[in-house]
Design a protein around this nucleic acid. Sequence first.
DNA 1: ACGACTTTGTGAAGGCAGGCACAAAGTCGC
DNA 2: GCGACTTTGTGCCTGCCTTCACAAAGTCGT
Lengths: 221, 221
Amino acid sequence: MSTAATTPRGVPDASVARLPGYLRALTAMSQDGTASVSSEELASAAGVSSAMLRKDLSYLGSYGVRGVGYDVGRLASEIASALGLTKDWPVAIVGMGNLGRALAAYRGFAERGFRVIALLDHDDRVVGEEVAGRAVRPMTDLEVLVEDHGLAIGVIATPPEGAQAACDRLLAAGVRSVLNFAAVVLAVPPEVTVRNVDLSTELQILAFHGHRGDVAEAVAP
Amino acid sequence: MSTAATTPRGVPDASVARLPGYLRALTAMSQDGTASVSSEELASAAGVSSAMLRKDLSYLGSYGVRGVGYDVGRLASEIASALGLTKDWPVAIVGMGNLGRALAAYRGFAERGFRVIALLDHDDRVVGEEVAGRAVRPMTDLEVLVEDHGLAIGVIATPPEGAQAACDRLLAAGVRSVLNFAAVVLAVPPEVTVRNVDLSTELQILAFHGHRGDVAEAVAP
DNA sequence: ACGACTTTGTGAAGGCAGGCACAAAGTCGC
DNA sequence: GCGACTTTGTGCCTGCCTTCACAAAGTCGT
Ligand SMILES: NC(=O)c1ccc[n+]([C@@H]2O[C@H](COP(=O)([O-])OP(=O)(O)OC[C@H]3O[C@@H](n4cnc5c(N)ncnc54)[C@H](O)[C@@H]3O)[C@@H](O)[C@H]2O)c1
Ligand SMILES: NC(=O)c1ccc[n+]([C@@H]2O[C@H](COP(=O)([O-])OP(=O)(O)OC[C@H]3O[C@@H](n4cnc5c(N)ncnc54)[C@H](O)[C@@H]3O)[C@@H](O)[C@H]2O)c1
């Protein structure tokens, strides 16, 4: 019933989607030894306007100093806290095909506080294989994994046909956040959050813009 | 100066981003032998509301029949045409690491009219290697490739440090559409379209929602 | 041939997000 | 210690996107 402005923690989705970008820029600055940034500098590093940045940050609280800017370390820590990154998030990857293996080998996970605790596949020929120094486990291990690690995020890297089944198993085991790489619309109850990453969709959107660019140039004059 | 509604081809960005989802659902229906769909059915298959679907389609023209619905084949073809998928789009993938190899092996490209014409890397140890039945080529091949194939879309799968350099080379060769998997903000001139796919960002957004879900439940009652 | 029924296409309204511009606030130099 | 300067935080406004609701349109059964 309350608006975003009323509740201190009511951050609009559009803002949330930009916070990781700010955090990344801040982390880079921190490693460069930069201690303080203005909204102008940070905005340009994150590729947004300074007004937008300030508005986004204002949803989190007042962590800037007028006339000076933001303390890099402090702001990074506040954003991380707002995103819920103060604890490690256990992640399981389902589907050890081409994409699943690339994801398993990706070290960007750990760098941002996501701990891959399991690689899963339903195919007996793949189960037991070693991927990125870890043994692939059968789907039946899911329940135990959730119990042991409090598994929170499931990544689906199966073909489209298997994605709903994989999702159902994740949900049954208690997972409530899913990152889906398969090109299907997953049916989930409302309390579950699904984010879709679809390469084909992205390419098609690019095709549209490339296409339109040509058309616009041909029509405008 | 004209609004989206004035120009027949003025499709809002938000709509464009959903068209690929409609197209995918239609393709699946077509393969099932379904000849006709209502906006209600198609909307549910694509995971949007029927009002939204109808409005999106109305930007493309009037291809439905009142009282009946849409002809699956016809609508698919109209959407494909609006997206600019009537021709093949040549794609080059830059950066043959874990991710680049997975992308190279992905057959979803060809299925949707995107033809991978080259795999590129700047590392001499990787150049010449065979990936997905294709030899990896050096960055210096870019210009010739663009000339020969009219290369239109570049995919960047290099580490963040190399992404801007890779992007610059693509643009210099004439590419105007870029799909970027590296977690950096690429600097490009306004006529170039860049879309970013960042796994870490997605996970952090999921973390926020998982986190918030807990908080909301704890605070609400 | 006609009427009832279904489903589209779209005007109108509401809500949300982005951008502008400025007052408030705090710093730094002198 | 004080004033000038810098930069934040935010109220307001504009435009876009989404949802609602219904008249128009065309079909199918009789
Ligand atoms: N490869 C890519 O670069 C790429 C890019 C974008 C999107 N995708 C999408 O990612 C998904 C995976 O692609 P891929 O190329 O890795 O496929 P793949 O066929 O190489 O691998 C799929 C793996 O998932 C496993 N699997 C299938 N059904 C399962 C189930 N129900 N439960 C558990 N495991 C199951 C299979 O055993 C197999 O090991 C696809 O949906 C694809 O569209 C892939
Ligand atoms: N591996 C994953 O699953 C994954 C997931 C999400 C995002 N990413 C991102 O994708 C990118 C690639 O990841 P990866 O794991 O494949 O990295 P990687 O280190 O395995 O491979 C990078 C490849 O790019 C090449 N390269 C580097 N600089 C280049 C340049 N300027 N021009 C041409 N080629 C260049 C290198 O020679 C190497 O072969 C990274 O930015 C990473 O953050 C990877």
